[in-house]
């Protein structure tokens, strides 16, 4: 391992991401958290480029750092920032997270190492995509051919997910939902239970 091992870049970016995540956890300001979340996404997009996932990087940059932040800001313009408040169940949360993280790290010690070309993941299906897809689909971008053809059904599902989300947002805050706000308030008293 040399100082100039390209792997350092990954680790550096990941370290940056960790710092950002840590700051987000500490921050009280929701607005700043959202901005940092955008930066987090952007950092991850950079990392994805380094890790050869250009399509994912492109998408993460436009969605995570772009649309997502815009939607957050749009929502936050309707939701006033509340005052500072202590954490709920900080100990329990920490315990759960540490246990989960420990399980995850200790449980994966015998995983194939990073970048190992002989890992099973690269040998079975993926290998066939790389060798067969050009002939079968005439599309040199394997990600596209897998996305749209081999696993095109997943992508139909993905489109349906977006469709679902749009419909859901529409039904929740579309049209004249405010007219309905008063009615539930009355229903409240009738059906209230502890």
């Amino acid at each position: 391992m040399t100082l100039f091992d390209p792997a350092w870049i990954d680790v550096a970016i990941l370290a940056f991401m960790a710092i950002v995540a840590f700051v987000v956890a500490l921050l009280r300001s929701v607005f700043a958290s959202v901005m940092l979340m955008g930066i987090f996404s952007l950092l991850s997009a950079t990392l994805f480029v380094i890790l050869d996932a250009v399509d994912v990087a492109f998408t993460e940059a436009s969605v995570g750092a772009g649309i997502s932040v815009v939607v957050f800001l749009g929502a936050m313009s309707l939701i006033p920032s509340p005052k500072a408040h202590g954490r709920t169940r900080p100990l329990l949360g920490a315990l759960v997270c540490i246990a989960c993280g420990a399980l995850l790290i200790l449980g994966t010690l015998d995983m194939p190492t990073y970048g190992d070309p002989q890992a099973p993941i690269h040998l079975h299906v993926a290998d066939r995509y790389l060798s067969e897809s050009l002939e079968a689909t005439d599309v040199p971008n394997v990600v596209t051919s897998v996305l749209a053809s081999y696993r095109g059904y997943d992508t139909l599902g993905e489109t349906t997910v977006i469709f679902t989300a749009a419909i859901a947002v529409l039904i929740l805050i579309g049209g004249s939902w405010r007219d309905g706000v008063k009615a539930p308030a009355r229903a409240d008293k009738e059906t209230g239970d502890a």
């Binding site: 994966t108 995983m111 194939p112 890992a119 099973p120 993941i121 079975h124 299906v125």
Partner: peptide, 11 residues
């Protein structure tokens, strides 16, 4: 992800 990592398949 872990499953895929160890086997290389999703089927």
């Amino acid at each position: 992800g872990l499953l895929y990592m160890m086997t290389g398949t999703l089927n």
